[in-house]
Computed example of a mutant assay.
Amino acid sequence: MDDFPYVADRTALNDAQVLILTFGRAAADEAVARADRSRDLGNHIHFCRWRQIERLVEWLSAGRADGTIH
């Protein structure tokens, strides 16, 4: 992944962590499912939020460091 994901707030990080701990490798798929469900309900705010969390899950699960390491 070339870009860092957008992190709106601490809750997004918490939700990404819960998905990773609960669903393992399928965490990003679960975030997509939640985004799709929100879209189907007409909730574009939660759709965008879950898509951002999907990208965050993928980034956190990449197993490598991006950017400067101190």
Rank of each mutant, 00 (worst) to 15 (best):
H44N: 10
A35D: 03
D9S: 15
V57T: 05
G24T: 05
G67H: 09
R55S: 10
V7Q: 09
A12V: 12
L41T: 01
L60V: 10
A31M: 06
N43C: 04
G67Q: 06
T22W: 06
T68G: 03
D29M: 11
T11M: 12
V57W: 07
R37H: 06
A33T: 09
R64W: 14
V7G: 06
T68Q: 11
A65D: 11
D9K: 04
R64S: 12
L60W: 12
R10K: 14
M1S: 10
E54D: 04
R25L: 07
F4D: 02
I20N: 02
I20P: 02
I69E: 09
P5H: 11
A26F: 08
D36E: 11
G63Y: 14
R10M: 15
F23K: 03
R64H: 15
D66P: 01
R51G: 01
E30W: 11
D66A: 13
E58N: 10
V7A: 09
E58S: 05
H44Q: 14
W59F: 15
G67C: 06
E58P: 00
N14W: 14
N14Y: 15
D36S: 05
L41W: 07
F47L: 04
Y6Q: 04
R34E: 02
R55W: 08
R10A: 15
R64N: 09
V32C: 02
V32R: 08
F23L: 01
A31C: 04
R55M: 05
L41E: 14
Q17S: 10
S38R: 06
L19H: 05
H44Y: 13
V7C: 12
E54Q: 12
A62L: 10
A26W: 03
W50I: 00
I69V: 15
D3P: 00
N14R: 15
T11L: 14
A12G: 13
W50Y: 13
H70C: 06
A35T: 03
L56G: 02
N43A: 03
G42N: 07
A26T: 02
E58M: 10
L56T: 02
L60K: 13
L13K: 06
S61I: 04
D2N: 12
C48A: 15
A62W: 10
